[in-house]
Design a protein around this nucleic acid. Structure first.
Length: 154
DNA sequence: GCCAACGTTGGC
DNA sequence: GCCAACGTTGGC
């Protein structure tokens, strides 16, 4: 760890699950991702100790609300095969899981939500995945440089 | 609530 | 394999 730590951005609608919910729970299973590209990151790329920017989408304001870290690497998402669950996927097979999640732990709340509109104007973030046109992925890589710029503002 | 940008589905 | 129709995401 440390050596090859990576950084990520996870989006959540705060009305569904906010940074305050994570603060209360201390730790949560990041479930419900049903997009293959995001799934690949969760299953293959998020590693123990990686840092996470917790992003509030569909919110007022939308933006970076806090920090978390990965405390358990990808494992199958049981909500995908639970017919009673909102995130049930009738096509997924419990013997060959399609959908994965990770456990994240609360690190800290941002002093203030850093709004998307403000991120767009910060030097050094021009290439950030979040700011690229049409970027809707709910799990995105962040570079060390981008992470440090944002950390320095919060 | 609107709608652009994507992703997925399914007929052919 | 193409692509139109449909569903979802998410900023505004």
């Amino acid at each position: 760890m440390g050596f090859c730590m990576n950084y990520w951005l996870l989006k959540s609608e705060p009305e569904v699950y906010s940074i305050d919910d994570l603060k209360r729970d201390k730790k949560t299973f990041w479930d419900g991702v049903r997009n293959y590209q995001a799934r690949n990151f969760l299953r293959d790329s998020l590693k123990l100790g990686d840092m996470v920017l917790f992003y509030h989408s569909n919110a007022d304001p939308t933006g970076i609300a806090g920090f978390a870290k990965v405390v358990k690497e990808g494992y199958p998402d049981p909500t995908a095969t639970d017919p009673k669950h909102d995130h049930f996927d009738p096509k997924s097979n419990p013997d060959n899981p399609t959908w994965y999640g990770v456990d994240i732990q609360f690190v800290k709340k941002a002093k203030r939500v850093l709004p998307l509109a403000e991120l767009k104007g910060i030097a050094g973030l021009e290439k950030m995945a979040l700011l690229q046109k049409g970027q809707r992925l709910s799990v995105q890589p962040v570079t060390a440089k981008e992470f440090k710029i944002i950390e320095g503002l919060l």
